[in-house]
Design a protein around this nucleic acid. Structure first.
Lengths: 190, 190
DNA sequence: AAAATTACTTACCAGTTAGTAAGTATTGTA
DNA sequence: TACAATACTTACTAACTGGTAAGTAATTTT
């Protein structure tokens, strides 16, 4: 039926991500996806047999994207401040759309998830924290960034500020998120 | 049937809180509560007609507890470091139980919630941030705490570190949460 | 002692959930 | 051109969801 077969699968992944970040993993159904895409329930099951397969697919997509970003960041010519802002802007985009971080959203339902998903979540977090840690360590070495903590701890402090910042903004408004970002940049950038 | 009538209602609130912090708001049902308490489905509906009433009741309980903590904190004789540690230990307790912050959990399902709940969430966050802000401002004035940001922004940075810290710990382990807490105390306490 | 209130149980329901088995049209391949 | 694979639709189900109406036993109030 579809001209380009992969379009539907990609659309399901895109919508699934949107629903998780907007309403939460256990708050949307396959019916929500099929209605929006004007396809039948079973078509979603064709691409992702169970809901856990869909979630695993969404996390895999995120892992892939962060791997690509890590490759971009491997270029030492890019200023550390720019890399830092690139990370922050990803969360700002979420905030603008009334969404929250995928990991933060799924984390709320963590103890309802199968091991296949838990493993992928660990991998994704390890990837993100590792990437940020590297940016921070190199930025400090080059004299472009400053902080007193270890790069590892500082990466966790930074990412928890951003992740919970967008959660806070959802309830109290974007002003608070902006104040957090401004403070973080002022604090870290030399 | 019950000797003390209020016991059941309080048990429902306690279990509801546990389920939200462990599995997420949209991941537990009235059946989960009634089974655990060995009562019938309808008994839960008797105390809380709808699920949103239960959530509202749970948030109200939290608001009440933080109001009481704020009164305790109004005593200027208590060292600021002790107040700070008291706040941190509340999150440590959650972490130990594999739970996450109530606000953080409910936030994931935010756009599925009725206005009555959204309003209460705003009130709760305002209360917590206001309380922490006051502790920080007074601690700095007394020379017991140090930070370069405004007390308002620092309260948000601190609370986002704690809230997302327990979320992170759920996936990567408690070591990361401990590292965050140690770093925060080292940074803020003079 | 009668009436009202509280805290439930019994029995029910309409709607939704994730999920499946079988059939079909289209496209690519031997 | 036959065959196989892809990408669906049709039609269905069992289990669960939040929710309700009516009845009941115990307690409290009048």
């Amino acid at each position: 039926m579809a001209v380009r077969p992969t379009d539907t699968k990609e659309a399901i992944l895109r919508l699934g991500t949107e629903f998780i970040q907007t309403y939460g993993y256990n708050a949307f159904s396959y019916a929500d996806i099929s209605k929006e895409l004007h396809i039948k329930n079973a078509a979603v099951h064709y691409h992702f047999p169970g809901k856990e397969n869909l979630l695993a697919g969404i996390i895999d997509q995120h892992i892939q994207r962060y791997r690509e970003l890590a490759i971009t960041f491997a270029n030492p010519g890019i200023p550390s401040k720019q890399k830092l802002q690139s990370i922050i802007s990803r969360y700002s985009a979420l905030c603008d759309q009334g969404r929250i971080c995928l990991i933060g959203s799924v984390c709320a339902d963590y103890h309802t998830l199968p091991d296949s998903v838990k493993t992928r979540l660990s991998e994704l977090i390890g990837l993100v924290l590792g990437m940020v840690e590297k940016v921070l360590r190199e930025g400090k070495k080059k004299g472009e960034l400053q902080f007193t903590e270890t790069a590892r701890v500082k990466s966790m402090l930074l990412m928890t500020n951003l992740a919970a910042g967008v959660q806070l903004a959802r309830i109290t408004g974007q002003k608070d998120y902006t104040a957090i970002c401004n403070s973080l940049l002022k604090q870290i950038v030399v």
